[in-house]
């Protein structure tokens, strides 16, 4: 292995993409099927979904070697990353139109006409954004799992894990922002409470599912993975990443919020702290996974690259700063 090819911006992009996609999916599910007419309550969550996707796209473009030509991502039919970009665009465009149709909740008079004009197409807009959101959640995991050069990524468990985590973080974000920026009446407050209750229970189920999938995946690799995947799993389970995995991911990001959800229901710990921990756990999961990009080396390859000067070596620094850039 020479170095990590994908760095922190991709970690943030995968997290925010899953989060935004999950919020769109759940918002569509609630507004169109579970609690029809609850649209205004999702004004703030969808705003955060749009912000998350926009910020995620920014980080994705920032990670490119040539950001000004990011539009080239749309120029082929087969690449999975192209389909991710299409899903992101669709979710953001249709989600924005839906969100703009509810701008009137802020009391801005100039938006009243906009709301009236878009009222009829709201279900279609949110429906399409929700479907695209679901696609984004799945895509973030599939993108990594199709890269079979990396043994720890190339498992069907990874898309499942990322999808469950995306849904879980979306539940957390909705729990934190539902009804934000909106003056709700009594009925609205009851519906908001109902949605809070549903999201609360669903997130408990999702956190349990995430713990299960994560442990099955990591411990399977630990016990029976090929040499490369097993090395990564060992690092996670009892190596230098173990504190982050057991302390940060499993305990801080999953078990502790689960306990708060169950044992402290109704308190600030359950309503605020637990969702924040779930969000942090989601980010940590992407971090741990993206930086587990070990590839099976060609015999002797590691020995070769270990002997090369590192990028901060005096020799290379002097060369770079000198007349001969290359």
């Amino acid at each position: 292995m020479k170095h990590h090819y994908w760095e922190a911006p991709i970690v943030i992009y995968l997290f925010l993409g899953g989060l935004g996609g999950g919020i769109f999916f759940l918002s569509a599910l609630f507004d169109l099927i579970i609690t029809p007419g609850a649209g205004p309550l999702f004004f703030a969550p969808v705003f955060f979904a749009l912000a998350a996707l926009a910020l995620g796209c920014f980080f994705l473009v920032f990670e490119l070697g040539q950001p000004p030509v990011f539009w080239r991502v749309f120029t082929t039919k087969t690449a999975i990353i192209k389909w991710g970009a299409v899903l992101l665009s669709v979710a953001m465009i249709f989600g924005f139109v839906w969100w703009a149709s509810y701008l009137y909740v802020l009391g801005w008079e100039w938006t009243f006409g906009l709301a009236a004009a878009l009222e009829g197409i709201r279900p279609i807009m949110l429906g399409i954004a929700g479907i695209a959101g679901f696609g984004i959640m799945v895509y973030t995991g599939v993108m990594l799992s199709t890269l079979k050069a990396h043994a720890f990524w190339a498992t069907p468990a990874l898309p499942v894990l990322f999808t469950v985590s995306a849904l879980s973080t979306a539940c957390a974000a909705i729990a934190l922002s539902l009804g934000g920026a909106v003056d709700v009446n009594v009925i609205g407050a009851v519906v908001a409470e109902l949605i809070h209750e549903i999201v609360h229970v669903v997130d408990i189920v999702l956190v349990v599912a995430e713990i299960t999938v994560l442990l099955i995946m990591v411990l399977s690799f630990y016990g029976a993975g090929n040499v490369t995947a097993q090395a990564v799993a060992k690092r996670w389970v009892r190596g230098k990443t173990a504190p982050l995995f057991w302390g940060g991911m499993i305990f801080g990001g999953l078990v502790l919020p689960l306990l708060l959800y169950i044992l402290a229901a109704g308190s600030a710990g359950s309503e605020i702290l637990a969702p924040i921990l779930v969000l942090c756990g989601g980010l940590l999961l992407r971090y741990l996974c993206v930086y587990s990009d070990e590839r099976a080396p060609i015999p002797g390859e590691e020995r070769f690259y270990e002997r090369l000067p590192k990028k901060d070596a005096a020799f290379l620094t002097a060369w770079t700063k000198g007349k001969n850039l290359y």
Binding site: Y5, W6, E63, L64, G65, Q66, V73, A79, K148, P297
Partner: peptide, 22 residues
């Protein structure tokens, strides 16, 4: 045509592609 997304770099099982950081 390349925009430097590094998907192909990650896809190569032999590690024979890269972008220069210099």
């Amino acid at each position: 045509k390349c925009m430097g997304c590094k998907v192909c770099v990650n896809a190569c099982p032999y590690g024979m592609r890269d972008v220069s950081h210099m």
